[in-house]
């Protein structure tokens, strides 16, 4: 799915050059659930931007879904972002003037999907995420968890190769965060490849592989034999809440 070889990224600000990534080699297979963690400044955001084709590497190669994308132009990047990558952001990044339905349709709009088809699929995916009665609500009429689910629906809508989630629980309370993680885990069980960027270890431990970054390098690559199960955690929380 993703094959990165000796990828590096250097930012230059005037006279200074700041290396953000210092030659990373990494394979992510289809169906994996990978968490990238690290302190701020460790390079995980840069990693995320490169994986998401929002930025270009300074050196190294990047194969996405079998295609070398290191040397494509802006338009190709846009097209690949549209077809291959689904973004989920910390701040949801929904357009405030559009309803949930329209927000989800947006990705398909740029894919050139016909209107009826767009409507049909958006309703389907939103229903799958339990938002069938929130289709025509605007983001400011929805809770944080609901907004993040709309954003996940939007990320899923074009059947991307990977979902890139950047601190998706960062703006949510812990129980809502778990609900979102439970959605990701369910999606992953159904075969969706997910790359999660987070600095919270508790969240990272829901994935099946944790990459720890520091100073622009991966310092630890660990398979998680028994990831946390968000669904069970929610149950436990509920029971505890019930007892108290």
């Amino acid at each position: 799915m993703i094959k990165i070889n000796n990828l590096s990224k250097t930012y230059s600000t005037g006279a200074f050059t700041v290396p953000a990534l210092k030659g990373i080699t990494l394979d992510i297979a289809p169906g994996e659930f990978v968490a990238i963690t690290g302190a701020s400044g460790s390079g995980k955001s840069t990693m995320m931007n490169l994986l998401g084709l929002l930025d270009r590497p300074s050196e190294g190669s990047y194969l996405l879904d079998g295609m070398d994308v290191s040397n494509l132009n802006d338009d190709d990047y846009a097209r690949l972002r549209n077809r291959k990558i689904g973004f989920v952001f910390q701040a949801f990044n929904l357009l405030p003037r559009l309803t949930a339905l329209k927000n989800v349709e947006l990705s398909m709009l740029y894919a050139g999907t016909k209107h009826e088809e767009r409507r049909k699929r958006a309703v389907e995916v939103l229903t799958l995420l339990g938002l069938e009665d929130r289709l025509h609500h605007f983001p400011n009429e929805l809770s944080g968890g609901q907004n993040q689910r709309v954003a996940i629906a939007r990320a899923l809508i074009n059947n991307p190769a990977i979902i890139l989630a950047d601190e998706p629980t960062g703006a949510l309370d812990s129980q809502t965060g778990l609900e979102i993680m439970s959605i990701f885990q369910e999606l992953n069980r159904q075969g969706t490849t997910i790359v999660l960027v987070t600095h919270e270890l508790n969240i990272a431990r829901h994935s099946r592989r944790i990459l720890r970054m520091a100073d622009g390098l991966i310092i630890n690559d660990e398979e998680i034999a028994r990831p946390l199960d968000a669904h069970n955690e929610i149950q436990a929380l509920r029971e505890k809440g019930g007892r108290a």
């Binding site: 998401g52 929002l54 802006d74 338009d75 846009a78 097209r79 972002r81 549209n82 077809r83 973004f87 990044n93 929904l94 357009l95 947006l106 990705s107 740029y110 894919a111 939007r154 074009n158």
Partner: peptide, 9 residues
């Protein structure tokens, strides 16, 4: 956001 979702320049 539009760019991330695949809008070309």
């Amino acid at each position: 956001i539009r760019m991330a979702l695949g809008a070309r320049r």
